[in-house]
Design a protein around this nucleic acid. Structure first.
Length: 465
RNA sequence: GCUCCGGUGGUGUAGCCCGGCCAAUCAUACGGGACUCUCGAUCCCGUGACCCGGGUUCAAAUCCCGGCCGGAGCACCA
């Protein structure tokens, strides 16, 4: 099996599907996996030099272990050998038609005048192409299929074209580049690929490439194609669109938590197993899928809920005084519901609450500051009145038990959200300073990964509710 | 326009190849309840689907035909 991306950006959820599904079959049937970079267009789909490593890194993170890694751009001479054979066999020919001209021939099913070029002459032209005697767009090499093929998409397709642009990996070493269809046809055979699973946008490749397989007497791999994946929360985002939005500053970078890249999910503290399960649950049907990230969240929550420690984070803060608080106290709270470990907080007269909570309550309502004390809301005086240390029966379970924080333990905290430019500012308890790089739960808020933390402040990334 | 493919609850998926065991699987979502000093988790209970029409058959989600809807390709992109 193989996974063959063009590294013109980092892997996204969509590309990860390719890695994970192929890898899963390899694991089930004890097969082999090749990671092949189909990077043969240095212009239109120009590879990003850093992205090669990003693919390797993210694959490893997803527990996808290729047995072999191949860079198409480093193997161009191999493709030259094969096209020369086809030229000799008169199964391919140099074509001087412009795109528009050829389109007319293709649409009407007529052979173009260059189609009958002799092998000898064709090879001569080919040599001149390699020598740089032609300009970009002047000539291409086409594979002979059948100009009367009922599907125009299959008729004599392009195998090589001239691109005089710098390639990020091989520089200006080549000016004649194979198209994906040609490169991939040759490689799949050379690498001994037996099964191909890929997106249905490549469905016609199969019928085009089969001509080459027929000419060489090779056997075409078994193929399976899946439909497009659309995530409700992200909509449609192409790599090039993301790149533009990063350049315009709408996103911080390729790992902006609002992006569907694997790097972003890593930053948010997702577990690779959850992503694998989510992607596998999509199946390999040919129909398009439109699914909500909630399914991913559910998978991830199953894993992290047991492990994540709980902390108080107050955002959009309001400071209030507790009238009649007998003394300041130290409260011990379990780090997580099942944990026997505790964290400690100080409860004082002045407390910080999240404004939304304060607004929600009515005058006279009895509210529990979780694990600290029970208070009564006084809207007239804009303060809280101490009622008792114990949990009062008048407190409505759940809804009226809220989180809080006192200045003594408060550290400035910003949480970067999962939508562009969404962030929450507030304070978090100092205890999270020990949780760097861990996913924790900010109670009554969400799971978050602590990305950076010291006395000067905390930066957390929103994982999911 | 030409070629190809698909349509199972709100969402995703299993079943379709090889018709009966499918009054249709699992997950998620949603609703209700229990528990919990988080609006989280857990545990119960519940809601909800075979695109439409015809045909073949004792029997159709499964096979055939037509329709409707959706998607992909028709690049010197991948």
């Amino acid at each position: 099996m193989r996974f063959a991306p063009n590294p013109n950006g980092p892997p996204t959820l969509g590309s990860a599907r390719g890695m994970v599904v192929n890898d899963e079959y390899v694991k089930i049937y004890d097969g082999k996996l090749v990671l092949r970079f189909d990077d043969t267009d240095p212009r239109t789909k120009r590879p990003l030099i850093e992205a090669y490593d990003w693919y390797i890194e993210d694959a490893e993170w997803l527990d996808v272990k290729p047995n072999e890694i191949v860079y198409a751009s480093k193997r161009i001479p191999i493709y030259y050998e094969y096209i020369e054979k086809l030229l000799e066999m008169e199964k391919a020919y140099p074509c001087f038609c412009s795109r528009d001209e050829f389109k007319k021939y293709r649409d009407s099913g007529i052979e173009c005048p260059h189609r009958c070029t002799s092998a000898e002459e064709a090879l001569e032209i080919w040599e001149k192409m390699l020598a740089g005697e032609y300009d970009e767009g002047e000539v291409v090499i086409r594979i002979k299929t059948d100009m009367k093929h009922k599907d125009p998409a299959i008729r004599d397709w392009v195998a090589f074209r001239i691109i005089k642009a710098d390639h990020p990996l091989v520089g200006d070493k080549y000016i004649v580049y194979p198209t994906l269809d040609f490169e991939s046809a040759i490689e799949d055979h050379l690498l001994g690929i037996t099964h191909i699973i890929r997106g249905k946008d490549l469905i016609d490749s199969e019928r085009r490439q089969k001509y080459i397989y027929k000419y060489f007497g090779w056997e075409y791999p078994i193929t399976k194609h899946w439909g497009r994946i659309k995530i409700h929360e992200f909509g449609k985002l192409s790599t090039s669109e993301i790149r533009k939005k990063i350049e315009s500053g709408e996103y911080e970078g390729w790992d902006d938590p609002a992006l569907p890249t694997i790097r972003a999910f890593r930053r948010r503290g997702f577990r690779p197993e959850a992503i694998r399960k989510f992607l596998l649950s999509l199946g390999v049907g040919e129909n398009d899928v439109a699914i909500s990230l909630k399914n991913l969240y559910a998978e991830n929550r199953k894993i992290i809920d047991k492990e994540a420690n709980r902390y108080f984070f107050v955002w959009d803060v309001i400071e209030l005084e507790i009238e009649g608080l007998p003394e300041k106290v130290k409260v011990k709270i379990p780090k997580s519901p099942e944990s026997k470990e505790f964290r400690e907080l100080t409860g004082e007269r002045k407390v910080l609450l999240t404004k939304d909570d304060w607004i929600r309550f009515k005058n006279g309502e009895i509210v529990r500051l979780k694990d600290f004390c029970t208070v009564e809301i006084d809207k007239n005086e804009q303060k809280l009145k101490f009622v008792s240390w114990e949990l009062n029966e008048n407190v409505k379970k759940g809804k009226n038990i809220i989180h809080w924080l006192c200045w003594k333990d408060a550290v400035v905290c910003v949480v970067l959200g999962d939508k562009p430019n969404l962030k929450w500012g507030g304070f978090v308890e100092r205890n999270v300073l020990k949780e760097i790089d861990k996913v924790v739960q900010f109670e009554r808020f969400a799971f978050c990964r602590i990305e950076f933390a010291d006395e000067s402040g905390v930066r957390a990334i929103y994982t999911h509710p």
